[in-house]
Design a binder for these strands. Structure first.
Lengths: 151, 151
DNA sequence: TGACATTAAATGTTTTTACATTAAATTTGT
DNA sequence: ACAAATTTAATGTAAAAACATTTAATGTCA
């Protein structure tokens, strides 16, 4: 559905305002699709993202700080997200040998298996559902990058 | 900062995946900017959005359902958002004359004043901070629209 | 070395979200 | 008209987010 229809607003003050609203709207749309896929696995979006970060480093572990640095939302509580993943046996945690303050987190085989299952569904809505060509997807990324350039 | 730098990931599996991550990232970036502006006014993003919806209908009131229909995030609890705005005297609430189930919500002069103040700051980061031309902003909206077209 | 600052992670607390349920008013169908 | 279904809003609730504080380990440097 178009934004205008969905939020019952027919005009925006500027192209920029419309783009901003469209980004927020599209983000919500994307989150909805992803959560639908994740729900049966009892994973939240944030937990899923942490899992993917851990897989990105497998078989090397990564500290909580390392996770935060790679998270899109830096404000969320990585410690507690890891707690939740621990309860599901998707990660293991042990003291970092060279810095006893830090904690090494490693994704388990079970975690990798869950992600592997999710990959196929992820692919489904990332490739099939999209009306964008690859070139257009790149163009979209470039525009977003440019939007964030403040100087 | 570029996404790659900020989340310390140098490659994406596909242009689509990168675009998705970029949307989420940009959305967080936008929310951060907005919240910075809203914080001194003790308003959350959602409350701010509800206020703007109410202004959009001023001087006509609008019901809670009407608010929900116009919100980007349909899942959030409009009743409680209105409660919060009531506490700050930014809106008033009274029974809808032609349907006693419904409740008419109207933005107050104080609410309008707050929004007017926020408008100028909003404008600041919507126009000055952006590296995008108007044409590019439109192009961005079009690409997002196209991305959401599933059929 | 030893005081002080910094870093890493966990924990506490309040607010917000997501979702279900409830309660009252209205609409529908017979 | 009246029972059943639907709509509207509020409320209950468990979980999560936002943000500050705490605890322990490490780093800095006079």
């Amino acid at each position: 559905m178009s934004i205008e229809q969905d939020i019952k607003q027919s005009s925006f003050k500027s192209a920029h305002e419309k783009a901003v609203v469209n980004i927020v709207y599209t983000n919500n749309w994307l989150a909805g699709l992803q959560m639908e896929v994740l729900k049966p696995y009892d994973l939240t979006l944030q937990q899923y993202n942490v899992l993917r970060i851990l897989r990105g480093h497998y078989p090397k572990p990564i500290t909580v700080i390392g996770i935060i640095e790679r998270m899109l939302d830096k404000m969320s509580n990585a410690s507690r997200l890891v707690d939740k993943l621990l309860l599901k046996d998707l990660v293991v945690r042990h003291e970092c040998p060279n810095d006893r303050r830090a904690v090494d987190i490693l994704i388990t085989q079970k975690g990798l298996d869950v992600l592997a299952e999710l990959d196929s569904m992820q692919k489904f809505w990332e490739e099939k559902l999209y009306g964008l060509s690859e070139a257009e997807a790149n163009q979209l990324s470039d525009l977003l990058d440019k939007m964030r350039k403040t100087t």
